[in-house]
Simulated assay, not measured.
Amino acid sequence: MMIGLSCHSRNYGGSTPDEIFEFIKKLGYEFIDVDSVGTIRQVDVLDNYEKQAELVKHLSEKYELKLAEYFLGGVMVDGRKIEPGDPDLNKRKQMYESFHKICSFARLAGFRSIMGSAGVAHKEAGIDHSFESAAAALDKMITIASEHGVAFHVEPSRHSLLNTPSRALEMAKAVKGLKYTLDFLHYQIHGFDQKESMKLLDFTGHMHARQAAVGWPKCPFEYGEIDYDAIIKRLRGLQWNGVIAMEFWNGPAEEAAGMSPVEQTILMRYHLKGLIKKYY
């Protein structure tokens, strides 16, 4: 039983997939999380999933990096991302068809899991109906992923239907087998008690790690308020055996502050390695 440590492929700016894999290998990571926006684009996967799977598998073997999670988000239909819970049933049917291709890609490449969107509230449907529709869609997507032999997770983010720990718990109880890619940043910046967000660890299949403070997303490590000691201790109690991905890329605010994504991810990894050694 052990926790694996991964690096998000989007952390360090735009490069070719080969350059990204090579750099993350040089940083000493065992796993890689692959982004679907800039690294291995979802549009390319949907166009030819076998070709993209072959590419990723080749890079994984070349640089001896294990494939953790494909960072997907919303599923594309005709170039537009469709969210779980979209009130248009025909769009959701097309979304499932696209998702089958993405799961085929993930299986052939050798990913452990895919991270999808938790869904958003649709104005015309309202929050409650959007929640019910998203639950139905996520249930279907879990089944599709299972048929392809890969795990399916969603990220309960501050921008989604699951923007509070209680709503994320409600969804986890409503959808059998639902697992999360949990990033405590999304709740910490709004001041939720970490004891509440830690209840989601019971439903967590994958994690993102970075620091945050109330009102300050992606703050420097030394200003962070997320208690990773308590998190790793709880994971040990749960006998959790997943992967935690370092996720930190510069937006305009971080760039203006002169922050280094490499520095932040290495600091976080060093901290987590010490905690894993302490509790595991």
Rank of each mutant, 00 (worst) to 15 (best):
L201A: 01
A136H: 11
S9H: 02
V120N: 14
E124W: 01
C7Y: 03
K218Q: 13
L162T: 14
K140H: 09
V37T: 08
S36W: 03
F21G: 05
A168C: 06
S130R: 09
Q239R: 15
L46Y: 02
I40F: 05
K123M: 05
I3V: 13
L162S: 11
E22L: 13
H271K: 15
G224E: 11
E155R: 10
G73W: 07
P165V: 13
L238D: 07
A68R: 04
M141P: 05
K66L: 13
Y63M: 11
M198K: 04
A209D: 02
K179C: 09
A145D: 09
Y49T: 03
L67P: 04
A125N: 01
W249F: 15
Y279M: 04
K199G: 03
I20K: 14
K26A: 14
A172T: 05
L235I: 09
H100R: 15
S197V: 08
G237N: 13
L138F: 10
E30I: 00
E155P: 07
G224Y: 09
R41W: 01
H159L: 13
E83Q: 12
L55N: 00
D35E: 08
D47F: 03
E19V: 02
Y29W: 11
S160P: 10
H271P: 01
R234Q: 15
W240D: 00
A134K: 13
H206N: 15
N241F: 00
E61M: 12
L72D: 08
D183P: 07
I114Q: 12
V175S: 12
T204I: 11
G79K: 05
G191H: 11
G258P: 11
R234F: 06
L67C: 08
N250K: 11
Y223I: 02
K179G: 06
G126C: 04
M1E: 10
K199Y: 01
T164K: 03
Y96F: 14
R107V: 00
W240R: 10
H58Y: 14
K233I: 01
A106T: 07
A118S: 15
K173I: 00
Q239D: 15
M1Y: 09
F71I: 14
L235D: 06
E222P: 00
K173T: 00
I266Q: 15
G110E: 03
H148M: 06
F221K: 05
M268W: 07
Y70N: 03
P156D: 13
R80Q: 07
Y279Q: 06
R107C: 02
I32P: 03
S260F: 12
G119K: 13
A68M: 03
K62S: 14
E247C: 08
I114H: 13
E97I: 12
C219N: 08
A172Y: 05
